[in-house]
Design a protein around this nucleic acid. Structure first.
Length: 252
DNA sequence: AAACCGTTCAACCGCTTTCCG
DNA sequence: TCGGAAAGCGGTTGAACGGTT
């Protein structure tokens, strides 16, 4: 936290927020909203830069923030989405209501990354982490200029191929797919991954509980689903998500 | 009790992207 | 279309805290 200041304005406070500052920010936003973060500190009387206000609100004060430890379902979701999206924390956070990108990033770096590494090492021989190949994802993309075919074997490949065939100038594309429903597309993590953690926890869950939380994928058929051009990632997220296991999605 | 060490997480910086005149 | 301002994002930092020696 002690770096060269980004917005060196005389008298602007840095560092941890006091309850009084939180109160000022919350009541200001409740009254006026946050149309302009830059202008907010002046108008509310806070001696903070707009950026700092935005961060405090987004990561801590928003009423819809979910506090407390991540559930195994959430951790599994993060692992799956990280596999697909990489370090795109905000996109991952968008799929986990109540969780912030900052929080997810912290959990990943301090917890999941290490655990996955350990787990990977310990299970290298038995290959308990594996990405099942999808034998039959066959996607037809139609637009006004014609059709193109996509045949691929994994969500990751789908995403990259999708972006290579879609053109951001397209207004609409229509995607039809034929899918092998028996395939699983994400890494399968067996019970031993959680058991290290469970061993350190007071509350233990049964294998059934843990299994029930895993959002492993069974695909829903989406006939004639429409996605915006360039929105391939969202399409694939929907495609690879089992209805009911994942939180409600925001409007894309 | 004190010093040390490792972990967590709120908050920062600087870069990139988006918006708007 | 362009350029400046604002917002968003990801990487990084360091204070706080708990555990260990």
């Amino acid at each position: 936290m002690v770096r060269g200041p980004c917005c060196e304005k005389m008298g602007l406070k840095k560092g941890p927020w006091s309850p009084e500052e939180d109160q000022i920010l919350v009541s200001y936003i409740q009254k006026h909203g946050h149309g302009n973060w830059r202008a907010l500190p002046k108008q509310s009387g806070l001696l903070r830069c707009g950026k700092s206000c935005r961060l405090r609100w987004m990561n801590y004060l928003r009423p819809d923030i979910k506090r407390g430890n991540f559930t195994k379902q959430e951790e599994q979701t993060i692992i799956n989405l990280h596999q697909m999206l990489g370090n795109r924390w905000s996109e991952i956070a968008a799929r986990l209501p109540g969780r912030t990108d900052n929080e997810i990033k912290n959990v990943w770096h301090t917890h999941l990354k290490k655990k996955l590494k350990l787990y990977d090492q310990s299970s290298q021989d038995s290959k308990t982490i594996q990405i099942s190949k999808c034998d039959n994802i066959n996607v037809v993309i139609e637009n006004e200029s014609g059709k193109s075919n996509l045949s691929t074997t994994s969500p990751q490949q789908c995403c990259s191929e999708m972006s290579s065939v879609t053109d951001s100038s397209m207004e609409k594309i229509v995607v039809k797919e034929e899918i092998d429903y028996s395939s699983e597309y994400f890494p399968t993590i067996d019970e031993s991954f959680w058991s290290e953690e469970l061993a350190n926890e007071d509350v233990r869950e049964t294998k059934e509980d843990v299994d029930a939380h895993l959002p492993l994928v069974e695909l829903e058929s989406v006939e004639d689903s429409k996605v915006d051009g360039g929105g391939g990632m969202d399409f694939w997220y929907n495609l690879f998500t089992r209805a009911g296991d994942m939180p409600d999605l925001p409007e894309f």
